[in-house]
């Protein structure tokens, strides 16, 4: 069942010099409920514009975007987002951050929900800590707990783990996949890291120059350990993505001209 539907979706920006820049060029895309979709591509290719549009933070200049049949006209608690930057509020303690999106709940229910999700991301002992007292990986876990606590049917993630080291990232991938499986949330995850897309995604979209160049099904067995990621299927997917990104084919001068 399709949950997210982009139809001829276009976004144009007016640059500082008055020129128009087309970030998304009439994109068509259907995302079924519960799928983990990874979007990979070069910087400036339209990945972030696509997910910001889904979050309602960027409005289209053409086409249509619906979530569960409803047109997206702005941000909504049905589409929570984890950003590339560190957005955990530094002036709130960890538990206040996690409870920030839980408006309207009775205090007891809210407390229960906060405790449950802090437990789920392994931060139960840090509920009263200030964000400055946590590492970058722990702050990302706070962000994860915050968005999962809200129970949004759609979770948007824009290169959320780009600044983390390899081990921290691997740990947080495991946590994210556990939470995703348990919640049934539909995840749209932007990354510039092909390996990250192969570890996480059910489906990998290669986006470049405002278009979807390829839509790859990534039905590798889970958990995706070294054996799975070294399998012929994974190697094939990796090759296909690298091929689309044009690594080693595009001379620097040609790229600069564009």
């Amino acid at each position: 069942m399709t949950l997210i539907k982009f139809e001829k979706f276009a976004v144009e920006f007016t640059l500082g010099n008055g020129r128009q820049f087309t970030a998304l060029k009439g994109l068509d895309l259907d995302i079924p409920k519960g799928q983990f979709v990874c979007i990979v591509g070069k910087s400036g290719g339209g990945k972030s514009t696509l997910v910001r549009s889904l979050a309602g933070l960027t409005l289209p200049t053409g086409g249509k975007l619906t979530v569960d049949g409803q047109p997206v006209t702005g941000p909504s608690r049905d589409r929570a987002m984890v950003f590339q930057e560190d957005t955990v509020f530094p002036w709130m303690r960890v538990d206040e951050n996690v409870g920030f999106g839980l408006q309207g709940l009775l205090p007891e229910k809210k407390r229960e929900r906060i405790e449950k999700w802090l437990q789920a991301v392994g931060l139960a002992d840090f509920s009263k800590a200030w964000p400055r007292e946590l590492s970058g990986g722990m702050r990302k876990r706070v962000a994860l707990a915050t968005v999962f606590a809200m129970g949004s049917p759609v979770l948007i993630m824009d290169e959320p783990f780009g600044a983390l080291d390899f081990v921290t990232r691997a740990n947080i991938h495991a946590i994210l996949l556990d939470l995703w499986r348990a919640s049934g949330t539909t995840v749209v995850f932007v990354t510039h890291d092909i390996e990250e897309a192969l570890v996480l995604g059910d489906r990998i979209l290669v986006v470049s120059d405002g278009r979807i160049l390829d839509d790859l099904s990534c039905d590798l067995a889970r958990p995706r350990d070294e054996d799975v990621l070294g399998s012929t299927k994974a190697v094939g997917l990796r090759k296909a993505i690298i091929g689309h990104l044009g690594i080693g084919r595009q001379p620097m001068l040609e790229s600069a001209d564009q």
Partner: peptide, 23 residues
């Protein structure tokens, strides 16, 4: 980034002002 984040968490403009902008 803070106001965008608050919007995606379902905050009204008034709550963003009180809970995000003021602190």
């Amino acid at each position: 980034k803070y106001t965008d984040y608050a919007r995606t968490l379902g905050c009204s403009e008034a709550r963003i002002y009180m809970s995000v902008v003021l602190p």
